[in-house]
Design a protein around this nucleic acid. Structure first.
Lengths: 216, 216
DNA sequence: TATGTTAAATTAACGACGTTAACTTAAATT
DNA sequence: AATTTAAGTTAACGTCGTTAATTTAACATA
């Protein structure tokens, strides 16, 4: 039943319907396993109808990634309320890992799949804005820890520190997502691995706890 | 020109020819971008001929992964000669990262793509044998450091420690492979990130350098 | 009120993919 | 010389992402 003109709001609504259906399928089966025809069937349209709203499959993926970047950032934003900045870094890591492990297919799309370099023309996420960008949040907290001089004195580049913390947590999560079922590694529990990574990063990057206590 | 019977050696040779062609294409373009027809053309056979030697595309990927696991392990094996075990851990990390970053498409296949759980029936790699398995090498070294009581006293599970070190290095490498070209992160140099991760793992996991010096 | 115009959808179709089936060729065996 | 059979080939299937051509029905105009 293909009738005619749609208000802008209706077009927007259909766009969202498509994205919701695609997201649900992507999450359940992974990006590659989901076909355009399958997405279309789920929302009761023909496959080609999708192309009236998205240039191609990649555009859908990108749009979903954008939404998920926002979801990740907003999920972490309450953590940013924690007063102590060291506690806040740790909580950010835990929150980030929770997101990664409970939405592995999203996480794979966002951080484990090479995408054409994020085009600011298209992306609606304001990168650098801590409200919308989880990495910006981490950067912010790390800078705060840095200014309180809680990092080891030889560490003079907060951005580098933030990228290292990110890499550590990401390493634990991405190995879990990719290789959790491989039997040739006798994996310790994911909780234990995450915990040790957190402790290692703290111990490895910060000055000793005694010194920390006596700091402003 | 398809004549007839081949000796076992000839069959084996063709198998290797297929694998070499596939590997070269995979490395250049990534697994998904390479087609069976393309592999076949490169070796002067029809696409279907490949199926006489491999069940399907996945079997080729798996066979290549196996070879690459061996290549990784053997590339690291001389590092195992380093006498000081702490130096050896660091060198293993550096060697591992060098492999990952200079063969990113291999690395992606091996450690960033979910595969049906490694079937010991098929795989020719002897997992657990440090000659053939890089993780077993790491495990070995970490155990040695553990026995010298150089890890912080609260760390009582060498396997967990090894998995954390792996995750740290893997995190740096996999983020680099996936997101190096994303502009919204102001990446520090990969060398700096790797260096800081190494130092952080060392500082975070080991007892202090002064104590270390006075240990057996 | 009849007639175009046009947005929103559809069906048809294309070329490429992984893979299977059916067929060919020529060496080895009888 | 006739038969079997391994090692190839070409043809073909079903599916994919995507584009082209076509239909449908609401609106605008005469």
């Amino acid at each position: 039943m293909p009738p005619k003109p749609k208000t802008d709001a209706e077009r927007q609504q259909l766009r969202i319907t498509i994205l919701d259906a695609a997201r649900e399928l992507f999450v359940a089966q992974g990006v590659d396993a989901v076909t355009m025809r399958e997405i279309a069937k789920r929302i009761g349209y023909s496959a080609t109808a999708i192309y009236l709203h998205f240039k191609d499959k990649d555009a859908i993926i990108r749009a979903i990634c954008d939404t998920d970047f926002l979801a990740l950032a907003s999920g972490l934003s309450q953590i940013m309320q924690i007063p102590d900045p060291v506690e806040r870094v740790v909580a950010l890591g835990t929150g980030y890992a929770r997101f990664a492990l409970s939405h592995p297919n999203h996480y794979r799309m966002m951080f484990m799949t090479p995408r054409p370099p994020c085009d600011p023309e298209i992306s609606e996420v304001q990168h650098g804005n801590p409200e919308q960008d989880a990495y910006a949040q981490l950067r912010l907290v790390v800078h705060e820890v840095y200014e309180r001089q809680l990092f080891r004195p030889e560490l003079t580049d907060p951005d580098l520190i933030a990228q290292t913390i990110w890499a550590g947590i990401h390493g634990v999560c991405s190995l879990e997502i990719t290789l959790a079922n491989d039997i040739w590694v006798n994996w310790r529990s994911i909780e234990a691995r995450l915990q040790l990574m957190q402790n290692t990063l703290i111990n490895g990057l910060l000055i000793s706890p005694e010194l920390r206590a006596s700091q402003p």
